[in-house]
Amino acid sequence: MSSDMLPLLSKALGETVYMVVISMIIATLIGIPLGVLLHTTAKKQILACRNFNRILASIVNAVRSIPFIILMVAIIPLTRLIVGSSIGTTAAMVPLVIASVPFIGRQVETSLKEVPEGIVEAALSMGATPLQIIQRVLLPEAMPGIIAQLTTVIISLVGESAMAGAIGGGGLGDLAIRYGYQRFRPEIMLATVIILIVLVQIVQFAGNRLAKKLNKK
């Protein structure tokens, strides 16, 4: 093993974790309210509003239909506007967040749909406001499902962050391509792949555990 490998790997891992964690936090903060709106403004739901729901759903579908690699390049001007540069780890987070928000929105919506209508109805019959229903009924009841869905989002973020890395974002993907592929260092390629596998396993395991712990059904 060459002496530069360990620092290279640990730096790349740090960058990947940084990109994924920060993007995930921001995307979740936007994605959960988006999912709540998608669900509650739909037909027969507590904030039913047909036109608003249609517009929101179209935007979500539009963004979701763009392949990540194209989205990344297409929004470079926006990225530049937000972080002042289009390369680097921080810049890579802009497309990561934009790609993840509608993904999370849809996933959260799916989980909320599974909350039995009757429970919401019971809360309405007790005089709960729509906001109280969202906070105390829909989100807690859907939480195990939401956690499971967010786990999937994190895992796809790990993959997307590798792509983002390839266009100058740093991280494990960047390392694998620059060293493993372009400089013919198969041991770095192998190590990167192993780290990615382990990372995904850890995320999945933790996600499953948490979802299971929250599920009282």
Binding site: I119, E121, S125, T129, P140, E141, K216
Partner: peptide, 21 residues
């Protein structure tokens, strides 16, 4: 109406309890 509903209790065939509480 929300206020009025507080003086009308309701129970259901499928109970409709919060499973997470």
């Amino acid at each position: 109406l929300r206020q009025a509903r507080k003086s009308i209790g309701m129970i259901f065939q499928h109970f409709n309890l919060l499973s997470s509480a």
